[in-house]
């Protein structure tokens, strides 16, 4: 009940994305301890089974590691985090370019637009 979930995607996937986002932005740092499954479940208002699945999948992605009796930690392996960032970046760009093509824009037009926007934000 505490966070709003999108209707078209499984809740566990939305939670994985949320934690990956926190890691990539640095809100969660390399080597930092994650809350316990139960604590995190209570915080965001989801079933503890769902949160267990989220933690398990993050571990399988090798983005977190579980230390016996201590809980889950963000990996200290910076390469893994960089690889994740690159992968997400590629995914974002691919989806974006598909929309660009679908609406009939040229890549040049879009690049120019992005450069102008980039200038404003810097």
């Amino acid at each position: 009940m505490s966070i709003d979930f999108l209707p078209d995607k499984p809740i566990y996937q939305q939670l994985i994305d949320r934690i990956l986002g926190d890691i990539m932005r640095g809100t969660l740092k390399a080597g930092e301890k994650l809350p316990s499954v139960r604590e995190y479940a209570v915080e965001v208002g989801v079933n503890a089974n769902t949160m267990q699945r989220v933690y398990k999948e993050l571990e399988q992605m090798e983005i977190t590691e579980t230390r016996r009796g201590q809980g889950s930690f963000v990996t200290e392996n910076q390469e893994k985090i960089m690889a994740l960032r690159n992968e997400m970046k590629e995914q974002l760009v691919t989806t974006f370019l598909q929309s660009v093509a679908a609406f009939g824009f040229t890549t040049d037009e879009i690049v120019k637009c992005l450069q102008e926007r980039g200038g404003e934000n810097d």
Binding site: M1, V42, N47, Q52
Partner: peptide, 15 residues
């Protein structure tokens, strides 16, 4: 109250 009850449910049951 609904939020409290939901959180109580997550916190105090063992799935």
């Amino acid at each position: 109250v609904r939020d409290d009850i939901a959180k109580g449910l997550i916190r105090f049951t063992d799935p």
